[in-house]
Amino acid sequence: MFVIVADDSRVMRQIVIRTLRQAGYDWEILEATDGQEVYDLTLDNNPDLVLSDWNMPNATGLEALIALRQAGCQVPFGFVTSEGSPEMREQAANAGALFLIAKPFSAESFKAAIDPVLA
């Protein structure tokens, strides 16, 4: 598996990557730091999954997802974000996201969200 992990916080990217390993996912990781990078790196590298923060500079994660779908890219996409309101979950689902993991998260919440996508 080859996964893009996107967050403008380097600390949070490290925590997400560490939590993926704790959840048993020994994947190759490429890091993105904003929404524009999510868009560019996804189209350039064709990952198996994108795990993206929502609120980032230079395009949000949601804007990146919408742009990817408009470009015809159907990459499996999930959010890892500090906000998990019903409104945001609905926006994420409508844009084509498979799940939204709210921070703070655990290895268990990662597995609960990601395992069904891999099945």
Binding site: D8, S9, V11, M12, N55, M56, P57, T81, S82, E83, G84, S85, E87, A102, K103, P104
Partner: peptide, 22 residues
């Protein structure tokens, strides 16, 4: 990031459309 996650969870309690800053 601690403030971001605390603030994001506070925002999730508020049942109105809202956005969060960096």
């Amino acid at each position: 990031e601690i403030a971001n996650v605390v603030g994001g969870n506070v925002k999730s309690l508020i049942d109105v459309p809202a956005s969060l800053s960096l």
